[in-house]
Design a protein around this nucleic acid. Structure first.
Lengths: 213, 213
DNA sequence: TAGATTGTTAATCGATTAACAATC
DNA sequence: TAGATTGTTAATCGATTAACAATC
């Protein structure tokens, strides 16, 4: 298994989708699937599926296809799901709360270990079994706990304050704030811009309308 | 201005980012910018910027660069922001509420006109000036109002029920539910899978860790 | 005019698809 | 064994980058 050639980021971004579809198949009790069948289900080419999986060293068997459970587990591992990740959420507005309350994350190995906010009225309030702490406690907390991921769901303005405390103490940042955070050497970053996605949709609508005329 | 050649979707996905950066420049009172300066700011190549803008027919001037305000307005138009879009939200959990409460959407021409949920305890409750209505009212509402976008922030299970009512009555779906909705001829769709993004982050972390060893 | 910077064509790079030999 | 389907190489396609003539 040639595990560690450099894998392109477009491939990596496709893995969670495979993971979802395989999870559905597994739940339906389906034992094996060929790249052709999977390609029809997912609306991609069988060739792409085989290429993608082979970036990680071939999970199938000629003449048979792929064992769903085995493939699912392998992808889980690549995604770090079986190992598990601990995470904190900074910013307990609606978005932060919606992430904190999303039980599926836990199922997928993402464990909430801390909640932080600036609003004193919220200190001590418990969400999903975790008490909300003041942002000023962040530094202390990070030094005492092993935190893999910091989820940033606070306003743009607070990012400057929180970022230096976080950097060096986590392995990844899941950033929903409107301040883009650049990836660095020891730090993985996913910048999620929800409004970008809405504007993209609006743009698609506009181009669709014009096409109609 | 050769407005309507087919523009690739990677280009369209980059537009909101340009829009954000240009908005920042505008707010700072900067009047003109060259593709080179913008490229350094945004960490892309100047070539790509010029190619991207030229898909829509050239917004610059040789020897000068781009007028920030003009460019900003042109991109606003392409994104449908100046025209404006009306939208409803179906599912008023934390995620739905966080979108309903996000004031920047309004600034960008996205107008919330309806909120729907299944929970009778919420009927009539007002959020951002809009009363929550029963999902059973959806059909009626869509026939009486001009709705551009339906935002789906409800559980997977309710999608099957709501989708047929929505299709044909909106131009686009911003889908946060865990049921992938395929794009169709008259219907633009953006499927947002937040958990995919988190898993991608986790995957990047894993590969980073391995690299470290 | 000379200098700057675009718009645009050409070259390169990377990603996707097709094809097929290897093999279960 | 014959049939099926992978793993993998080769061909194609599309996106990015480089280069430069056009022009403000």
């Amino acid at each position: 298994m040639a595990e560690h050639k450099k894998v392109s980021s477009v491939v990596i971004r496709r893995l969670p989708r495979y993971y979802r579809y395989l999870g559905d198949l597994l739940a339906k009790g389906i034992k094996r699937i060929s790249s052709k069948e999977l390609s029809e289900l997912m609306n991609v080419t069988a060739s792409q599926i085989r290429q993608d999986f082979n970036c990680f060293g071939g999970f199938g068997q000629q003449g048979y296809g792929y064992n769903v459970e085995y493939l699912y587990n392998e992808i889980s591992d690549i995604l770090g799901i079986r190992k598990g990740r601990s995470m904190i959420i900074v910013g307990t507005g609606n978005l932060g709360m919606s992430i904190a309350g999303y039980s599926n994350f836990k199922k997928r190995g993402f464990n909430l270990v801390g909640l932080f906010d600036h609003n004193p009225a919220l200190y001590g309030k418990e969400v999903s079994g975790i008490k909300i702490m003041p942002v000023t406690e962040l530094k202390n907390f990070l030094q005492g706990h092993n935190v893999d991921i910091a989820v940033l769901t606070m306003p743009k303005e607070s990012v400057q304050e929180v970022l230096p405390v976080i950097k060096g103490n986590v392995k990844g940042i899941w950033n929903f704030s409107h301040k883009e955070i650049p990836q660095e050497d020891g730090l993985s970053v996913e910048n999620v811009h929800l409004s970008d996605s809405l504007m993209t949709l609006s743009c698609k609508i506009g181009r669709n309308e014009k096409l109609g005329k």
